[in-house]
Design a protein around this nucleic acid. Structure first.
Lengths: 225, 225
DNA sequence: TAAAACTTTTAAGGCTTTTTTAAGGTTGAC
DNA sequence: GTCAACCTTAAAAAAGCCTTAAAAGTTTTA
């Protein structure tokens, strides 16, 4: 679950980041409106926490711009002003929820949960599929007594496969989510990592497969012999 | 251990800060009620020292507001008035302890210790992992007859590793928790200290390792030969 | 108050692991 | 059977990490 924080007050931004990372969200953090829009436009985030007052471009502009470009990532706006006109303006510009500073961490988490519930499942630390299980907080893949550690990219890719267990996920998707939207990785990079993953799956004697569907992508499948 | 001081009398605030930093607390300091509430709401502090008389919002209001928002950070209220009504009002509003000015630094420290002990946030004095044991109150790391003293930062990092024994803890996390939110320490600082720790672990002939997982962080591991 | 002792930061070279690249082999749809 | 897509692997390149020494900053001691 990826969150983008756009907040120029660095202290607050860091506190937010800590609150969220403690809850196992993956957090990116930028400090002005220009970067905020750039990052948000990637469309890879599950939520954007957006301050209203920002250098270069304010939160309303960013929200408006995103929606105009068909980026539907849920936006949680933050503002110091607790006035009704502002609230309306925020929601009109495309924000999905609104929160005034100061706020309690619980409230933040609750609102984020509400926003993300709408679209998908929250990633649990320990996930399983077929005959293996994967612990995201230790990055360990295991079946029975056997286990291996996955490195960063392997883990990211496996998480994606797990999160999309009943759809085919395309290589393009994997690239933008793991390498970043502006990376110049090619499909062979994904193929190489999928191959590494298969080897590790094999090493723990799992009979789960990462099936490849030509021209479409990958998907996890439990082989039922 | 992070402390927030909310006190408009800057001279006193500075003195408080000095007393606390000498004891290795990490201190943030603000001078009015508005900032006080903002900062306190972040929920990142272990104690809040709160003056009663403050510009914009008084201490009672702040305490009340915090509790209303489920922020349970212990509050130590400060006031010049030594009257019973005030005391009652302070504790009713959500404060956990109360101290009248002037006070002795010893008293301040004692009360803070009491407040942080209460929540059980403080680690047990003696903790172990694998084949070593660590005494948090003397900062001594030992295995069998051999032992070494850890300095402050080494000890803080080891405590974090111990507290996160079944997850990977990131360098970012270590930096914000040991160096503080607004520090500009880089990852190499952490690496250097981890290296010191490993040397000491080695010195006492422990076979426990601080494993590094690239791009992810560190984790304690008992090598099972 | 100066020296000594200790802590913390910084920086650089070397090492390890990850990541990319590239090339030859396989597969399966047409 | 052909061809594009995909797989696997080795090796090159890059990134991240470790360790160390020395500089800089602190605190303690004499």
């Amino acid at each position: 679950m990826q969150v983008l924080i756009v907040e120029d007050e660095k202290r607050l931004a860091k506190a937010l980041k800590q609150i969220l990372t403690e809850q196992k969200y993956m957090v990116d953090m930028v400090h002005d409106g220009r970067d905020g829009l750039d990052y948000a436009m990637s469309g890879i985030y599950d939520v954007i926490i957006l301050d209203v007052m920002l250098p270069y471009r304010d939160g309303f502009e960013i929200a408006y711009e995103l929606r105009k470009n068909k980026i539907e990532t849920p936006i949680l706006m933050l503002t110091a002003k607790d006035t009704v006109p502002d609230k309306v303006s925020g929601l009109n510009s495309g924000a999905d929820d609104y929160m005034t500073k100061p706020f309690a961490p619980e409230e933040l988490l609750a609102r984020i949960k509400a926003l993300t519930r709408r679209r998908g499942e929250v990633m649990l630390d320990e996930t399983g599929f077929g005959d293996f299980s994967f612990n995201a907080s230790t990055s360990e893949l295991s079946k029975g007594a056997k286990s291996v550690r996955l490195n960063f990219k392997e883990a990211e890719i496996l998480k994606l496969l797990l999160a999309n267990r009943d759809t085919i996920i395309s290589k393009e998707d994997i690239i933008t989510k793991v390498w970043g939207y502006d990376s110049d990785a090619g499909s062979n990079n994904v193929e190489a990592y999928v191959s590494f993953l298969r080897r590790k799956l094999n090493f723990i004697n799992s009979s789960t497969e990462i099936k490849s569907i030509k021209k479409m992508g990958y998907r996890l499948e439990q082989s039922h012999d």
